[in-house]
């Protein structure tokens, strides 16, 4: 352990913690980075802090009591609204299903994914399209949850394309799209800062974000790509680096 119960904290302990949290001013960050390069002990202490933060963030929520609901009139309004909404969704599904299926089969994976992301990103934050069943989530889901990105939407197309939508604490939206087959690489004119695509293990992947700074997106995209492509022993250092860099990156803008 980097810090013992019966010892005084190191002189730079507070600053080191603030560095791990991304709370230092740029000049202080640079000074601390230099100190870390020169001092293996300080670097070891930083690793201890980051490790602790990772474990804290991974703590399970435990049993959560039900959210109270308002009784009387608001509830009856909600029931009416829910009934009407269900009717609208069924009617829309019947009407739009042929179009959606056509789009999915004749359109490209990219086009279908962008359309699905657009729908997910522009839907009201408080109205997720569906609740993700934990068992149905990909391994990526647990990794993103550790970064505070919660899955709130999942869809599977008739052709087996899986889409999962995540929302961050500040409202940014990220969606992962998985095709059951390898897909064509993105053309140069299709490359935008918060869109990443790759093939791995015979599957095609697309990651799309809205409201997320480019640097933050690139961190996630790089890690998810490694997670789906690299052996586990190569992923672990990347996970540690991601957790370390994540807090110091610019937060979501949404």
């Amino acid at each position: 352990m980097p810090y013992q119960a019966d010892s005084h904290p190191p002189e730079d302990w507070e600053t080191l913690n603030a560095f791990a949290d991304g709370e230092l001013a740029p000049a202080e960050q640079r000074a601390m980075a230099e100190r870390l390069a020169d001092s293996p002990e300080t670097a070891e202490r930083l690793r201890g802090i980051i490790r602790l933060k990772q474990e804290l963030q991974a703590l399970p929520a435990g049993d959560v009591p039900p959210l109270p609901t308002l009784s009387a009139s608001p509830r009856s309004y909600w029931r009416q609204a829910a009934a009407i909404a269900v009717a609208i969704v069924i009617a829309a599904a019947v009407a739009l299903a042929p179009m959606l299926l056509l789009r999915d089969s004749s359109g490209t994976f990219l086009a279908a994914s962008l359309a699905a992301h657009e729908q997910f990103a522009t839907s009201a934050p408080s109205q997720p399209i569906a609740t993700v069943a934990p068992a149905a989530a990909l391994p990526v889901t647990s990794e993103l949850s550790r970064l505070g990105l919660e899955p709130i939407w999942q869809a599977t197309s008739a052709t087996g394309q899986i889409r999962i939508g995540f929302v961050g604490a500040r409202g940014c939206r990220l969606s992962l799209h998985v095709s059951p087959q390898a897909e064509p690489a993105l053309a140069p004119d299709q490359v935008v800062p918060t869109l990443a695509g790759w093939n791995a293990g015979g599957r095609g992947y697309l990651l799309i974000a809205t409201g997320m700074p480019t640097a933050r997106f690139e961190m996630i995209a790089g890690f998810i790509k490694a997670l789906t492509s690299e052996p586990a022993d190569r992923v672990e250092p990347l996970r540690t680096a991601l957790q370390s860099d994540w807090r110091s990156a610019q937060p979501c803008l949404a």
Binding site: L67, T69, L70, P74, Y77, W78, A81, A82, P125, S126
Partner: peptide, 13 residues
């Protein structure tokens, strides 16, 4: 009713 539902869903998150 819609506002109450939206509030509830927001709090649920």
């Amino acid at each position: 009713g819609r506002k109450a539902a939206a509030r509830n869903a927001r709090l649920e998150r």
